[in-house]
Design a protein around this nucleic acid. Structure first.
Length: 941
RNA sequence: GGGCCUGUAGCUCAGCUGGUUAGAGCACACGCUUGAUAAGCGUGGGGUCACUAGUUCAAAUCUAGUCAGGCCCA
């Protein structure tokens, strides 16, 4: 038998079926580096409209985790797709380098040595550490395929950046928005230092637990009695519960819940206020019988009433607070604004003094009667005794609970109001402006605007100072004679100039005189001797200045950036700090659009964390399946909500990648002898099936381009899967094989198919490039024709909508439905072992109505369409309703139907094209070949 | 505990302003193929649209509550 196979135009390509991404990806990355892809792209797009995504700086500590990978990949897809849409889309990555986590890490690493180091020395160690992690993360981000200006990123610890931060602060100072005030922080009286939340460890601790009575003043009693007659003539008092007796001397208020109802119950001759819901329990706990209430009073009635402090000659005012709970205590919360976080908020709200008569060593100041000179813990029993003497102590016992301890010395810590720097939210309308800006910015998803607004509306003044080392110093001075804090625009600029040249370490190493502008005098006492401020700026101020600071390093970028893209956790973080800083420096938001993505959760939808042991490091995924798979996963999920990740999800993504890759491969393999410059067939000369494929491609490409514009990547993923699997692989490629393989290489029919396949392959390479940059570029290189050296320098296909042809598609979708019905019949034969492949079948169609016309007009195409050897069609009404003796009826609508009968094809099999024909050649040279193949072979001679 | 968000087949997603038997791709099952072959094709099964009430002639789609989960805050 002759070897007819060698006379076919079988597909061939160097594009491998197996991706081997572990090898291919690093190679491709190296190639992009070698050709200077990022710079080339910038050059290529110079002068085009700009689209600037401003990178939010990840923290320079630890390895990249899945959440960071999701964020960076999304940004890369956005930037690449904008670039391919013709924009000049620069991407300058950044890192957040200052801050507590790095400082703590070093303190732990250095151990006792840290205490001997100078501030500047410790800072240099932090700088070195941060630099190391910048390098590590940079490599990890590059490995993900993220294209950007990796050679020149922005770092918040850059000298120029540090100067820009200080200058940004200066704009607030200049406008009088920065003030010094008090705020309680965790404080270790043993180490005499402020502690951050991360430095506090909660351990069980036995505290004294006391119930204390605060009598209502005469004025208040009268006011209350006028509304609640049952109180007439009674001595009314409020009962509170606390586990920190030492804070009683600093009590300034009693907090009630605005929605709670309080009962006033006679107990031992007086009337006591407690939450109604707690009366019974308290009566038992205190061992005192509470009589039936003489009045029921809503919490709101107590607002502004003056109670009397049980120990000192002063009032304690009634206030309202939502955090008051009704499951423990009395429903009335003792409030000392200088010694509690919530107390502070309430104090600020009601304009109370932030009173904290306790020094850094934890001792009461000398002006506090009874406890002066005692430490707070020593004061506990003294306060209890005094309350007992005053007849205000109802009960005391020991109470065990989780209590904050210093991570270093293990001693219990306290809340202590300390001096801090603030940016005022309301004095100069910052809050109002911010709210107005949230209405102008476009938030994706839309509810982001509401979320942002409600946060801005309720947030307190911005506390911008931290008592730490690794950060940008607040360039303020303290008057040596009167202690007044001084912060002026001149001071700020002076420091900025130094930082710019020598870095912020200079603040700690230079003589203070270097920072004092000529002629500066204390505004309070006129003194001219100063000491430097030791506080640093909140690191959120650092990163919040990035839109400004980046311009110092990259003056080519414009302001404002177009887009911010971060996780939803940044509404309170970076989105807000950036907004506030920008309002200070420029009076508007630093972005026009904010896109947010959800957090990565595990496959069952629960939190992913290292401590739970269900986190997956991205490099593990990269090692196993490649970064392209991770990128395709990112594109496949609806990132606006939390996104799930797990082994099954990953397996599905791998499947999609494989299907895509193989389909791309078969297209390329059929184009191995195709030269677009010479072989393209004009549309009017193309086979209709090829024009149909082009029309479907046009629909697909339009959809994808729209989706890129709308950041709707899951739509792209779904459309891509469907187009590749259904339109191309299962239909177009399958039905085109006969023409491609068996016709003469240069025949019109074959070139027609190749023309369509070439356009589709070329378009697919461009369309997938932002998501799968390695696959796209590898594929790009395997396609024929003149092209850019990288698909990433090219643009998306243009005018794809011109390929669309709704009329053609509608007609063919009818043919495809008919094809599905035929396939069902063929399957019956196959299951009955009557046939194997579909070419062994013949199909008889008896149509009626519109279907009969359709069949008649596509008579010649149908065998190819069905991939059967024979199809005959006749117009004849199929017996309406009655079951046919054989085959099946496919009904398009009530007027048109077709009776389908499939059977084993008659005739003989052509050994070359495998179709069954009436007769094959007996010519010894062409034995077993059908007439059509014979002609092809003859022409090839 | 509060603010915001989410809950459609095993997985990832569609289902517009409420309207016929809820769709797609993948996975799965059963065949076919061996001229895309560590590939390809065909057929098929699979969902009480988280749950419960309600509005409506009609709800996956609107309202309320419950449960489960996420982010931020307390």
């Amino acid at each position: 038998m002759a070897d007819w196979k060698s006379t076919l135009n079988l597909p061939t390509t160097s594009f491998p079926m197996k991706a081997n991404l572990q090898v291919a990806e690093p190679q491709m990355l190296a190639r992009w580096d070698a050709i200077g892809l990022y710079r080339k792209l910038r050059d290529r797009r110079r002068g085009a409209p700009v689209f600037y995504l401003h990178d939010g700086p990840p923290y320079a500590n630890g390895n990249v985790h899945l959440g960071t990978a999701l964020n960076k990949i999304l940004k890369d897809v956005v930037v690449r797709s904008r670039s391919m849409a013709g924009f000049d889309a620069p991407y300058v990555p950044g890192w957040d380098c200052h801050g507590l986590p790095i400082e703590l890490k070093l303190l732990k690493e250095l151990g006792p040595k840290a205490r001997e180091m100078s501030v500047a020395g410790l800072r240099r160690a932090c700088r070195e550490y941060a630099g190391r992690y910048v390098d590590i993360q940079r490599e990890q981000f590059k490995r993900l395929g993220v294209l950007g200006d990796w050679g020149d990123p922005y770092l918040t610890m850059d000298y120029r950046y540090q100067a820009a931060i200080v200058r940004a602060l200066g704009t607030f100072v200049e406008r009088g928005m920065v003030y010094k005030g008090k705020k309680p922080v965790h404080w270790c009286i043993h180490c005499r230092t402020a502690l951050a939340e991360a430095e506090v460890e909660y351990e069980d601790h036995a505290s004294p637990s006391i119930y204390v009575e605060f009598p209502l003043g005469a004025e208040g009693s009268a006011a209350l009695a006028s509304r609640f007659p049952g109180l007439e003539g009674r001595r009314v008092s409020a009962l509170i519960w606390t586990t920190t007796p030492w804070t009683i001397p600093a009590n300034l208020a009693l907090a009630f819940h605005p929605d709670a109802v309080y009962a006033v119950c006679p107990v031992d001759g007086r009337a006591v206020i407690v939450a109604e819901a707690l009366v019974e329990g308290l009566s038992a706990a205190l061992g005192r019988p509470f009589e039936e209430p003489v009045a029921r009073v809503p919490g709101t009635a107590f607002e502004g009433l003056k109670f009397r402090h049980p120990l000192y000659e002063r009032d304690s005012v009634g206030v309202l607070a939502d955090y008051v709970t009704l499951d423990t205590g009395t429903g009335i919360v003792h409030t000392a604004p200088g010694h509690g976080s919530e107390d502070f908020q309430t104090g600020v709200k009601y304009g109370l003094d932030i009173y904290a008569p306790v020094a850094a060593d934890g001792r009461f100041t000398s002006d506090v009667e009874r406890v002066a000179g005692l430490t707070v813990f020593e004061a506990n029993p003294v306060v209890e005794a005094a309350l007992g003497e005053a007849g205000a102590l109802w009960k005391t016992e020991s109470f065990s609970h989780a209590y904050p301890h210093c991570w270093r010395c293990r001693n219990p810590v306290i809340f202590l109001a300390t001096s801090q720097w603030f940016i005022a939210m309301d004095d100069t309308g910052l809050r109002r402006q911010a709210i107005a800006e949230t209405r102008r910015v476009r938030w994706v998803p839309e509810w982001g605007g509401d979320r942002m607004r409600s946060m801005v509306e309720t947030r307190p003044d911005w506390c911008i100072s931290r008592q730490r080392t690794w950060g940008v110093p607040i360039p303020a001075l303290t008057c040596s004679s009167c202690g007044e804090a001084v912060l002026t625009a001149g001071l700020v600029e002076r420091a900025a100039a130094v930082f710019e040249r020598d870095g912020a370490e200079a603040w700690y190493e230079r003589p203070v005189a270097d920072f004092v502008p000529e002629g500066l005098a204390c505004p309070s006492c006129g003194g001219t001797a100063f000491e430097r401020e030791r506080d640093i700026l909140d690191v959120w101020f650092d990163s919040g200045s990035s839109h400004e600071a980046i311009l110092v390093v990259h003056p080519e970028l414009h302001w404002p950036p177009d887009l911010y893209l971060e996780g939803t956790d940044q509404y309170r973080g970076w989105f807000q700090s950036s907004m506030l800083v920008a309002l200070g420096t420029r009076g508007r938001a630093p972005y026009d659009q904010v896109l947010t993505h959800g957090m990565v959760v595990s496959e069952d939808g629960t939190k992913m964390s290292k401590s739970l042991g269900n986190d997956v490091p991205p490099d593990e995924v990269i090692r196993k399946t490649g970064a392209e798979i991770l990128r395709l996963w990112v594109a496949s999920v609806d990132f606006r909500e939390e996104v799930r990740f797990g082994s099954e999800i990953l397996a599905r993504v791998v499947e999609a990648y494989r299907k895509l890759r193989n389909t791309l491969r078969i297209l390329a393999a059929n184009l191995s002898d195709f030269d677009p410059a010479a072989h393209m067939v004009p549309p009017q000369a193309m086979d209709e099936v090829d024009r149909y494929a082009m029309a479907r491609y046009g629909e697909f490409a339009s959809r994808v381009l729209t989706a890129y514009d709308e950041y709707d990547y899951p739509a792209i993923f779904q459309a891509l899967n469907a187009f590749v699997a259904v339109d191309l692989s299962a239909f177009y490629v399958d039905v085109s094989k006969d023409r491609l393989y068996t016709l003469a290489p240069g025949s019109r029919g074959r070139r027609s198919a190749q023309t369509a396949m070439f356009a589709i392959a070329d378009g697919l390479a461009r369309l997938i490039a932002p998501i799968l940059p390695v696959l796209a570029d590898e594929y790009w290189a395997s396609l024929p024709g003149e092209r850019e050296e990288s698909v990433h320098l090219a643009e998306f296909p243009t005018r794809v909508e011109l390929f669309r042809d709704a009329e053609l598609v509608a007609r063919w979708s009818r043919l495809l439905k008919l094809r599905a019905a035929v396939n069902a019949e063929l399957e019956r034969l196959r299951q009955a072992k009557a046939i194997g492949q579909s070419l062994e079948a013949a199909v008889h169609l008896r149509g009626t109505g519109a279907l009969a016309d359709l069949i008649a007009s596509y008579r010649d195409e149908l065998p190819g369409l069905f991939i059967t050897s024979q199809v005959d069609g006749e117009t004849d009404a199929p017996s309406a309703g009655a079951e046919p003796e054989a085959g099946a009826i496919y009904r398009e609508d009530e007027h048109s139907a077709v009776h389908i009968v499939a059977e084993r094809a008659a005739g003989v099999k052509c050994e070359r094209c495998w179709r069954y024909v009436p007769a094959v050649s007996s010519d010894p040279e062409r034995e077993g070949v059908c007439p059509r193949c014979e002609a092809v072979l003859a022409a090839a001679r």
